[in-house]
């Protein structure tokens, strides 16, 4: 048993949620990017999580969360009529990225609340460990 109970589980969840926040930031930053290295507009990136076994405790397996992969959202973006745009096609239509700001904001809030919840667990675990060290003082 670790002196700080469950900190390894919380650490995994914290880094997974932070990665999700990073990807949301990237999506929002590229909400108007019509030209990428691979050509074509930016494609929204989506993080997927998977569980990872940390250890067995009390007869049950304890699992943390980690990022299993980051993949592109393949749905096509909007087409906007803007003939002045350098990336406009011969018909004057520009293919925009498939980033939906409302989705990103929801994801941002979900991820940051999940991060906060895990952070409060980490703080609490630390306080318990400090109390343990004070035994007999």
């Amino acid at each position: 048993m670790n002196i700080i109970s469950g900190i390894d589980i919380t650490a995994g969840a914290l880094s997974a949620q932070r990665m999700r926040l990073d990807i949301v930031a990237q999506n929002i930053a590229n909400a108007e990017t019509t030209r990428t290295e691979t050509g074509g507009p930016y494609q929204r990136q989506v993080v997927s999580f998977e569980t990872e076994l940390v250890k067995q405790a009390g007869g049950q397996s304890l699992q943390t969360v980690k990022v299993s992969g980051i993949a592109a959202d393949k749905t096509p973006g909007q087409q906007v009529y803007n003939p002045q745009h350098p990336d406009a096609g011969p018909d004057g239509m520009v293919q925009m990225p498939n980033v939906n700001l409302a989705y990103e904001m929801v994801d941002l809030i979900t991820a940051s609340r999940a991060y906060e919840a895990n952070l409060s667990v980490a703080k609490n675990a630390k306080n318990l460990a400090m109390k343990t060290l004070e035994i007999g003082k």
């Binding site: 469950g6 969840a13 999580f49 304890l62 699992q63 919840a117 667990v121």
Partner: peptide, 15 residues
């Protein structure tokens, strides 16, 4: 032990 269980529950709140 309960603290560990709660840590696991919160980490897996979206699993």
């Amino acid at each position: 032990l309960r603290q560990e269980a709660i840590a696991s529950n919160i980490a897996n709140a979206e699993t």
